[in-house]
Simulated assay, not measured.
Amino acid sequence: MNVPAYKREAINRMGVRLLATMRRCKSPKPLPKSLRVIAVRVVKEAMLKRLEGRAEIHPGIEKIAKWGGCGERQAQRHVRTMENWGLISPVSSGRGGRFYATEYFVEPEVLIRVMMVMGGNPSPDLIAEMRDINPVGKGDIKGDIKPRQKGCHMSPRIRSTQKPPSQGRGETDV
């Protein structure tokens, strides 16, 4: 499914404004140019994928490094930074490696909060534009089923590793 050209142009224009806003983030120190470019590119890629009906993106470290114009090791640091922000969440096995790129769920709303906290002061128009283009939030569940596919997955795939607490008295976990 192709995204119409006018929507791609709108996402690209929004990306330019987003990059200019991230340039103003100064607290506690200015963000590196490569991190700003990678974060904007990840958000743009996620928005395009969502318009195509998919929920995750899966760029490899090589592609992320190429987007930011930096080395692979620096790209890995930037991915960890974006994970710490909550902008991206790995939803497949974090195994990675060549031909096994980790899938990420991207939450563009987090980038708005990061810019506000770091003093970027995004304009209300930019915030509204991001929310209009990005209709699916983290709380929404979307099933991806392809023709002749035996199974499907629900996105986002966020799993809890903790056991729920016991409800009754005298029950023990064995």
Score class of each variant (00 low, 15 high):
residue 1 M to N: 10
residue 2 N to C: 07
residue 6 Y to D: 08
residue 8 R to K: 14
residue 10 A to H: 10
residue 11 I to P: 01
residue 16 V to F: 02
residue 17 R to D: 13
residue 17 R to C: 01
residue 20 A to R: 14
residue 20 A to I: 03
residue 20 A to E: 15
residue 21 T to W: 10
residue 21 T to Y: 11
residue 23 R to K: 15
residue 28 P to S: 01
residue 29 K to W: 08
residue 29 K to G: 06
residue 31 L to G: 06
residue 31 L to H: 10
residue 31 L to I: 14
residue 32 P to H: 08
residue 34 S to N: 14
residue 36 R to C: 15
residue 38 I to R: 11
residue 40 V to G: 09
residue 40 V to T: 14
residue 42 V to K: 07
residue 43 V to F: 09
residue 46 A to K: 09
residue 47 M to W: 01
residue 48 L to K: 04
residue 50 R to D: 07
residue 50 R to I: 05
residue 50 R to A: 09
residue 51 L to W: 15
residue 51 L to R: 11
residue 52 E to F: 02
residue 54 R to P: 04
residue 56 E to G: 10
residue 57 I to H: 02
residue 58 H to E: 11
residue 58 H to M: 08
residue 59 P to Y: 05
residue 62 E to M: 09
residue 62 E to R: 13
residue 64 I to G: 07
residue 70 C to W: 08
residue 71 G to Y: 01
residue 73 R to Y: 06
residue 73 R to I: 01
residue 76 Q to I: 01
residue 76 Q to T: 00
residue 76 Q to L: 12
residue 77 R to W: 03
residue 78 H to Q: 11
residue 78 H to N: 08
residue 79 V to F: 09
residue 80 R to I: 00
residue 82 M to R: 12
residue 82 M to W: 12
residue 83 E to L: 09
residue 85 W to S: 00
residue 85 W to I: 05
residue 86 G to Y: 09
residue 86 G to C: 05
residue 87 L to Q: 10
residue 90 P to W: 11
residue 91 V to D: 06
residue 92 S to P: 02
residue 93 S to M: 07
residue 94 G to R: 15
residue 97 G to Y: 04
residue 97 G to E: 02
residue 100 Y to T: 12
residue 101 A to V: 03
residue 103 E to T: 08
residue 104 Y to T: 06
residue 104 Y to D: 07
residue 105 F to K: 02
residue 106 V to D: 05
residue 107 E to V: 14
residue 107 E to R: 14
residue 108 P to W: 10
residue 108 P to S: 06
residue 109 E to H: 10
residue 109 E to V: 10
residue 109 E to P: 04
residue 111 L to S: 02
residue 113 R to T: 14
residue 115 M to Q: 12
residue 115 M to Y: 10
residue 117 V to W: 11
residue 123 S to V: 04
residue 123 S to R: 06
residue 127 I to P: 00
residue 129 E to I: 03
residue 130 M to N: 06
residue 133 I to R: 02
residue 134 N to C: 13
residue 138 K to R: 15
residue 138 K to N: 06
residue 139 G to I: 03
residue 139 G to S: 05
residue 140 D to C: 07
residue 149 Q to K: 12
residue 150 K to F: 03
residue 151 G to Q: 12
residue 153 H to W: 12
residue 153 H to Q: 09
residue 154 M to G: 13
residue 154 M to K: 10
residue 157 R to A: 10
residue 159 R to W: 09
residue 159 R to Y: 04
residue 160 S to M: 05
residue 162 Q to E: 13
residue 167 Q to L: 09
residue 168 G to H: 02
residue 168 G to E: 00
residue 169 R to T: 04
residue 170 G to N: 06
residue 171 E to Y: 02
residue 171 E to A: 05
residue 172 T to E: 03
residue 173 D to L: 13
